[in-house]
Design a protein around this nucleic acid. Sequence first.
DNA 1: TTGACATATATCGAATATCGATATATACTT
DNA 2: AAGTATATATCGATATTCGATATATGTCAA
Lengths: 113, 113
Amino acid sequence: MPVDKTLLSGSTSLLILKLLSEKDMYGYEMIETLEKRSENVFELKAGTLYPLLHNLVSQGFLSCYEEDAGGKVRKYYHITVEGLRRLKDKEKEWKEYANAMIHVLGGVIYEGI
Amino acid sequence: MPVDKTLLSGSTSLLILKLLSEKDMYGYEMIETLEKRSENVFELKAGTLYPLLHNLVSQGFLSCYEEDAGGKVRKYYHITVEGLRRLKDKEKEWKEYANAMIHVLGGVIYEGI
DNA sequence: TTGACATATATCGAATATCGATATATACTT
DNA sequence: AAGTATATATCGATATTCGATATATGTCAA
């Protein structure tokens, strides 16, 4: 059950940074991992991911190296120190946003997030 | 402390529909109410709101009537039956999105929202 | 009374983000 | 041999928001 794609706007880089804070991954792997972890709510498209990865590299938040996997060359991405800092900021920002939404929607504020 | 504006993408109409499900409001009032309720996290701009309101009216989710307030004409917006249905759908969608985010971010899933 | 600021609505162009379509190439399966 | 999955990439179209700008009235202080 994928959600309105515009809801993802702005949170995609956060999701990617989060995944890479756990281990190095290649693009295709990120798409599959996100899909599984979110129980098919996030269906990140390749046309969204690859330009975003290049962008994060050029901003210094990720580094990239190639590795051979049975004839196929995979591009692994690794989060940098600046990337970890960025992740922390983005995570905090998202929690602020979510709390504000819950507040307006009339629910209790979830202090845990 | 306003958050990254791209995070709002897609949730703005949900916020507006939610406000109007409580009472009729005019545009300027919505901007101020959202700002207060979210503790300055949401700073909806007039350039975003007014076209959005017109759009929601043309889609049949809102109706509009004018009222005089000390020389100034205010345009009050009222949520329609279809608007209420839309609100319910959008609310459900946002909760699905938020739960998926929390899931990926490694937090517990907040069943309440 | 004049100037500044708040109220109130509106439009337009620029910037940003995502997707769909398309392209390329290899591996695996049937 | 053909089709599907893996894997990366680019481009144009679409959607959303904002900043800037415009207009007009009310209020308050100097």
